[in-house]
Design a protein around this nucleic acid. Structure first.
Lengths: 172, 172
DNA sequence: TATTTCCAGACAAAGTTGGTCTTCTTTCTC
DNA sequence: GAGAAAGAAGACCAACTTTGTCTGGAAATA
């Protein structure tokens, strides 16, 4: 009952592209180091994203990845499902439409309801909106006792990102 | 991103008890064969359910399990979490409150929103309500091309259950 | 006391997750 | 055309989780 690292990393990768001017080609290890993701693992994930049509890959020197679709119209649901496969809480509906358990299908119905809720949340959220808000801590800040987003002490924030990580929404 | 068999079986086990008169003691292998679950696996699961206080166990001949709380007030959320542990979509909030990824916490917020939706569905559904409705196929019957709940051809439905599986809600 | 039932824990096979590594192929630059 | 630089593809792998099984014991009952 978790989102896998792969799904999470895929989203982070796309968000890294979305933060940049549209069409920019970015190398894998730039993205990977920016988000602290193992390069080769991210490579595998971006292969999925390429096949799914979210990004275009360019080989050779000056190569890298660039967004193929506008981040405004890429939903989290699409991304996650392109990496992890269809979101499904139970096996009943996919494997076999009728489950053999006595009270099984009442459960299947419930699971499928919960599943749809998740899908709905993911379907109405885009890569762009996530990139924009960046730090939605306003509502659960107190729970964690945090005053805002932190970064690793010895690790400088890349220059081109400082503007974004101090975006107006966050400060207010 | 799935409910485990263990969680599913646990629910089915409780539902099997809830179908019977309150307080009835039922042996593990009765429940197991009724729901087609491996006995020893179900045994492990019922150990959890016992510890969590949903059922009471009795040893020796005439032993078995009986519901300790009313099925009306046992929620699916409680049951699932007692077996699988807390429902959590991401690691951000549990492991470390601040994630090191660049756009990470926007994602964490989203995941936690989806997670809450699931919890909400599970928290407002009780073992009793599931047992009552039994077959919520009315709304996705057409998708599967089914005309109603099936049971294995050679496998007779236990007598005491026939009434329930043809409950009024289902027929209408 | 014998039998029946659950309890507790060790064990294990299979699948999934989270990667790494190597060997291409493509593209760019000199 | 020769390198070098970058992604592509696939084999591989360690660790963990899931889904069980099995054995020996403990308690309750007949």
């Amino acid at each position: 009952m978790q989102i896998t690292r792969a799904g999470e990393y895929g989203m982070l990768g796309l968000m890294a592209l979305a933060r940049r001017p549209l069409g920019d080609i970015v190398m894998l290890d730039i993205i990977a180091s920016e988000e602290e993701i193992p390069v080769s693992f991210l490579g595998k994930i971006f292969q999925n994203l390429t096949k799914a049509g979210f990004v275009r890959s360019a080989r050779g020197s000056k190569g890298g990845f660039s967004l193929l679709r506008s981040p405004e119209e890429i939903t989290v649901l699409e991304v996650i499902e392109s990496i992890e496969g269809k979101i499904a809480f139970q096996r009943c509906q996919e494997d076999k439409p009728d489950c053999t358990h006595m009270g099984g299908c009442a459960l299947c119905g419930l699971f499928s309801e919960a599943q749809d809720k998740v899908k709905e949340v993911f379907a109405r959220t885009t890569v762009a909106s996530l990139t924009r808000q960046h730090t939605p801590f306003s509502d659960h800040q107190e729970q964690h006792g945090l005053t805002g987003p932190k970064h690793q002490p010895g690790k400088p924030v890349p220059e081109h990102l400082i503007q974004l990580s101090k975006s107006p929404q966050t400060v207010n």
